[in-house]
Design a protein around this nucleic acid. Structure first.
Lengths: 197, 197
DNA sequence: TGTAAACTACCGAACGGTAGGTAGTTTGTC
DNA sequence: GACAAACTACCTACCGTTCGGTAGTTTACA
């Protein structure tokens, strides 16, 4: 139904992930979608509202996928963690793209206030979820951590974000995959490994 | 001597670290320094050249501090690592500022080509140096690592960069200090700690 | 069922503002 | 007098946004 609005969101998100929100212009989106600039404003009255719509759609999609896997009794904490890594592993094959929240976090000062609020909530949700996976894994005896769930969830989240950003300038494509492997070492499912206090 | 040029570089760097290169304008710098816009262009003909000058000055300063500490026989690898963390600990008390290379890495696609080259070299130098501290620490028996020097240096560098970026939106000021503590746990100077293979 | 009102999707043209950058001129100091 | 440093004035390009208007579809009601 809202085919045009969806395409605008698709193209907009792609442009944010490759070039950032500030660099994304209505003109760029219009050219890609095949309509004129004011037609975008018909669907999304301001650039800020378009930005908010893109974030909300992404977050909602992610949240529902999240729900699905955490409610599945056949999935372990390790599976959940691997699921958390999967979008980043996918990004590892698209050298010039970063994840949406990382791209937006990188230009927080230049963002309209409404978007800053949205980005903050988005990042906090990500961190909470990862922390919960780790905490539950420890409680169930499925995971052995090198550090506290809270501290380790920050390390993993921050290094994933940092890696995506840094990778774009170093053009070292293997770095992201290496990093995820390193993260797996910090979270052991093999309980024979000695835990560091 | 070049008092004005230096002030332009100072203000420019400050603006990049707080708002990014794209958001920084000649007008902003001029207002802060107390001169007119074309006077900046007199010292730095293009915005790209100003950007390159800022990066080069930062890198050269950092490199010489780096030389000093690594040549001092009284300093251990652990001291060198703490020195590496020190600028980040300083940034921990300035909530809206990120480090220069992180700010620039975040907007690589929007940067002029000459600056992209400079940023790439800057980041690679940082990573190489950190890796060298760790490698030397292991060889001297001063450090016990949770992972290989190369892999761990990436984890530390990426998570520091990511943390600065993320922190600006979450406004969680303690997160950076927590992270550095977590990093210290991944690199142990206490050899009684069991090393994970 | 006919028809007028309302709505949706889109368009061309233009506005106010800001960006980086240029040309030419004045000022201050060896 | 030479020259660097600073100035005023101006340019082009592009940004998000607004305006006025055009089709085509849907809705409301006599």
């Amino acid at each position: 139904m809202n085919a045009t609005a969806d395409r605008i969101l698709d193209v907009g998100q792609e442009l944010i992930q490759t070039g950032g929100f500030s660099a994304m212009s209505f003109q760029d989106i219009a050219s890609e979608v095949g309509i004129r600039k004011p037609s975008i404003i018909h669907h999304f009255p301001t650039k800020a509202e378009l930005g908010v719509a893109i974030i909300r759609r992404y977050r909602d999609t992610f949240a529902s996928q999240l729900q699905q896997i955490s409610k599945d009794p056949a999935k372990s904490s390790w599976d959940a963690l691997e699921f958390y890594f999967s979008p980043f592993l996918f990004l590892a094959s698209t050298p010039d793209k970063v994840c949406l929240c990382g791209a937006l976090a990188g230009e927080i000062p230049a963002l309209p206030e409404v978007m800053r609020v949205e980005v903050k909530q988005f990042i906090e949700a990500h961190q909470r979820w990862l922390e919960e996976i780790l905490r539950e894994g420890v409680e169930l005896g499925e995971l052995v951590l090198i550090d506290s769930p809270k501290s380790l969830s920050r390390v993993i989240f921050n290094s994933l974000q940092g890696s995506l950003l840094v990778r774009r300038s170093t053009e070292d494509v293997s770095q992201l995959k290496d990093l995820i492997n390193a993260m797996r070492k910090l979270v052991k499912s093999d309980s024979s490994i000695q835990q560091i206090r």
